[in-house]
Simulated assay, not measured.
Amino acid sequence: MATGHTDPRRRERILAAALDLIAEEGVAGVSHRKIAARAQVPLGSMTYHFTGIDDLLLQALTGYADHVVTLFEHHLTGATTPDQVREAVTDLIHTLSEGPRRDLILVQELYTLAARHEPYRALCARWMRRSRTLLEQHFDAATARRLDALIEGLPLHQALDDTPPDRALTREAVSRITADT
Rank of each mutant, 00 (worst) to 15 (best):
T6I: 15
P8K: 02
R11F: 02
G26N: 08
G29V: 05
G29Q: 03
S31M: 14
I35T: 05
A37N: 09
A37K: 06
R38L: 04
S45I: 02
H49G: 02
D55E: 12
L56T: 04
L57W: 03
Q59N: 15
G63N: 11
A65K: 07
H67D: 12
T70G: 15
F72D: 01
H75D: 12
L76A: 07
A79I: 01
T81P: 08
T81S: 04
T81I: 11
V85F: 12
V85M: 13
A88E: 03
A88M: 01
H94S: 01
S97L: 15
R101M: 10
R101N: 13
R116M: 05
R116V: 00
E118A: 14
E118I: 06
Y120Q: 04
R121P: 08
A122L: 11
L123W: 01
A125C: 05
W127A: 03
W127N: 01
S131T: 03
F139P: 07
A141G: 11
A142C: 06
T143G: 06
A144E: 07
R145V: 14
R145F: 09
D148G: 10
G153Y: 04
L156Q: 08
H157D: 06
A159I: 00
L160V: 02
D162W: 10
T170C: 08
T170S: 03
